Amino acid sequence: MTMRRRIGSAALAAATAALLAGCASGPQVTPITTMPAPRPSGTAETRALSPAVQPAGEPTELASGLDAPWSILRLPDGATLISERDTADVLELLPDGSTRVAAHVDGVQPSGEGGLLGLAFLPEGDWVYAYLTASDDNRIERMPLTGSPGSLGLGEPETILTGIAKAGNHDGGRLAFGPDGMLYATAGDASNGDRAQDKASLNGKILRMTPTGGVPDGNPFGTLVWSMGHRNPQGIAWDSVGTMYASEFGQNTWDELNVITPGANYGWPVVEGVAGDSRFTDPVTQWPTSDASPSGLAIVSDTLFMTGLRGERVWSIRPDATDAPTAWFAGTYGRIRDAVAGPDGSLWFITNNTDGRGDPRSGDDRLYRVALGTT
């Protein structure tokens, strides 16, 4: 039977919150509230969101024996690459469920939460992008994809961005190309919250850049900074109408799901979670840190799927709903690091029990696939 539980919503008013704290038995999750829905440049019409979907049946295992996997990259030809944080290997998934090392990324110096992190792909030129921790900083490199499925490789790296401060934690590390063709990257505060409020710093930000690392037109401060006031964002995704979302680790109280708009300030380290402070943009959903510690974020049929590390579950969130998010597979597979849209409308996700913070099971870590159906 599918591991599913419904989480009740928490009110934001202080009196109601206090009442709920005294009588509710489960964790409190702030539900989706009214969201802005920025459109991609040049898109004037308003379109309806796709029908909501949810897991249908139990996940099936696609691969096992992974070592602290961090990012799943599905390529247009159907091939799949997986980054391993501590080995600095990029693995290729083979049809029989085994993996092979497609490339080892030189210059990676894993430490704490740093190492080989997010991957992204640019079809124009067949470039694979990687966010990695080097000797002095976090940086972004790109490498040409070589070979064909079953024998993929990566060519000589080209560095497109350096100077993102590194630390043993709060490194960010997610990469994704947006609907505008620009490359977006999440950069944590590297354990220094003041950086998040410093417009001159790359840290504590979501960055937007051209495929070669330049500052594109439309960036709000004339720099690579797209949004600021972040502690440790690790998931980014866009729905079909162009709304950008990011999942973010809180410190002790609230993890967040944010709608990202250019130039917005999300408050860290001044505030954490919903604060009602006009200087900052509140999250649209928040969770107690014990129930989320969110990392990867995927959107399938305009339904958000957010992975939880400490929470050991996948959350589904519907942007046009007023009810609270739904937790799936809670405690069944351990820590869950990343999720992506799979073929045929499915969802793929990877566990992260071998990263030094989990409780590895025989065969961990694993890549899973779960079918999705309409609600």
Score class of each variant (00 low, 15 high):
L116I: 04
V101I: 15
P179I: 01
L117M: 14
L154M: 10
G155V: 05
M209F: 08
V225G: 01
L152G: 02
N138Y: 08
A165C: 09
V108W: 03
P179R: 07
Q109D: 15
H104E: 01
L207N: 10
V105D: 03
Q109C: 14
G150D: 14
L175E: 07
R100V: 02
A102S: 14
G107Q: 03
G115T: 00
M228E: 04
T223V: 11
T99A: 07
S111F: 09
N192Y: 12
G218W: 05
H170K: 09
S201E: 11
P110I: 02
D194Q: 15
G213D: 14
G222P: 07
P157L: 04
G107D: 04
D171M: 06
L119Y: 07
N232P: 02
D217I: 02
L175A: 08
L154C: 07
E156W: 06
G222M: 13
Q197R: 10
T99R: 01
A185T: 00
V101L: 10
Q197G: 09
V105I: 15
S111R: 15
G229R: 03
G181Y: 06
Y129T: 03
G229C: 07
M182C: 12
D137F: 01
P216N: 13
L202G: 04
A134S: 15
T223M: 13
L183G: 03
R174M: 11
P123S: 14
L202W: 12
G125L: 09
R100F: 03
K205P: 02
L122V: 00
L116G: 02
S191R: 12
L122G: 04
A102L: 01
P149C: 11
R100L: 05
D126V: 06
A165M: 09
L207M: 15
A167E: 13
M228T: 01
W226E: 01
R139H: 07
N232R: 05
L161T: 07
L145T: 01
D189R: 05
H104N: 11
A196D: 12
A134I: 02
G155M: 10
D106H: 06
D180V: 03
R195P: 08
H104C: 01
K205A: 04
E156D: 15
A187F: 03
V101Q: 14
V105A: 02
D171K: 05
L207C: 14
P123K: 10
N169H: 12
H230N: 10
H230P: 06
T133F: 07
G173H: 06
G115F: 00
A134M: 10
D126F: 04
H170E: 02
Q109S: 14
N219Q: 12
Y131D: 05
M182I: 03
H230Y: 07
R139M: 08
D217T: 07
D126R: 15
A176W: 00
R208E: 05
D137W: 01
T99S: 09
L116F: 09
P123Y: 09
G168M: 11
L202Q: 10
W226V: 04
I160K: 12
E124A: 11
